[in-house]
Amino acid sequence: MASALLVIFWTSVWPYLLGVLLVGAAVAIGWWLWRTDRLVRGRDRLRRQEEAVRAGRRTLAEVDGMTGTEFEELVAELCRRDGCTEVRRVGGAGDNGADVRGRLPDGRTMVVQCKRYAPSRAVPTRELRELLGARVHFGADLAVLVTTSRFTGPSVRFALEHGILLVHRDLVGAWNSGASLVSLSAVNGRGQGDARYRRRIASEQ
């Protein structure tokens, strides 16, 4: 009698158990396929970004469309392209004012802060003070601030007084097109923007 009841119970229950197992397997396979697709797409996107950097095909409009993290990754890749070593992106919460760290080709250590701002926005002096603190905190030889916008007159003067390398919007374009980071130090904040920006800088002095 017990055996008969067990058979009846199993006969009525097993289709549901099988259905649950099939649904679970389908969900697991679907998740695995989704995850694999995300990883493949992410790697392919990173590869295309690296190729674009090396070829200098990235436009400033494309840079403007990046997230803050993507801009930091671009800056790190440009540093690597120029022969910098030990380059790593460290931006995020608790970054102590550093977004990218590494060594220049001559062995000097550097700390880089990246500001992906709208072209009309200017980097104020307080951002340079924060970067100066990061240079002291990490004991770096060189501090660099890279931005998609421009710098105010006071911030340019502050940078020159404290040996901070400024890479404004125009220099980001030159850097991306093949100029080396070291070569930008000869310009260091000068020649930024069009005549309207230069007049604004002059009015702030």
Rank of each mutant, 00 (worst) to 15 (best):
Y117A: 13
L78A: 05
G68N: 03
C79P: 02
G153W: 00
E161V: 08
R35E: 03
G153H: 00
P15W: 01
G107K: 02
Q113D: 04
T85V: 14
R89K: 06
N176P: 04
Q205Y: 01
G83F: 02
V40Q: 14
R81E: 08
V172D: 01
R157H: 10
G24C: 06
R129G: 12
G56A: 01
D64R: 08
Y197W: 13
R196L: 12
V111F: 09
D106E: 08
A186D: 14
V172P: 10
V53N: 00
R57E: 15
T148W: 00
A143M: 05
P105I: 03
E161G: 07
A195F: 03
G193S: 08
M110G: 11
V75T: 14
V123F: 01
S177Q: 12
V146M: 04
E77S: 12
T148L: 03
R38K: 06
A26V: 08
L160P: 13
V63K: 02
R38F: 03
R57H: 08
L78H: 00
S155I: 06
V13H: 14
E62T: 12
R135M: 12
E86F: 04
D82M: 09
L128G: 06
L46D: 14
D44F: 04
S183T: 14
R45M: 11
F9C: 13
V167N: 07
V156N: 00
L22E: 05
R103I: 07
G139L: 03
E72I: 09
V75D: 08
V100A: 10
R190W: 07
D82L: 10
S185L: 11
A26G: 10
G191P: 10
R41G: 08
S180D: 03
S180K: 00
R198A: 11
P124K: 00
T109R: 13
L131F: 06
A93E: 11
Y16A: 15
G173I: 00
S183P: 09
V75A: 11
F158Y: 14
V136A: 09
V63W: 07
T148M: 06
D99P: 14
F151V: 07
L60E: 12
Y117R: 04
L166Y: 01
L171C: 11
V167L: 13
T11D: 11
G65A: 11
R135P: 12
T147C: 06
R190L: 13
L22H: 02
R89T: 08
G24A: 08
A93V: 12
G173V: 02
F71N: 02
G173W: 00
D37R: 09
Y197P: 08
L145W: 01
G97F: 05
A195N: 06
D37G: 02
W14R: 11
T69Y: 04
A179L: 11
S3G: 09
L6A: 15
E50T: 09
R121A: 13
L33G: 15
Q192L: 09
R157C: 08
A55G: 04
D64E: 14
T125I: 12
H162M: 03
A2W: 07
S203T: 15
L171N: 05
G178R: 02
C114P: 13
S12G: 15
G91C: 11
G24D: 02
L5M: 11
L128T: 09
A2I: 13
D44G: 10
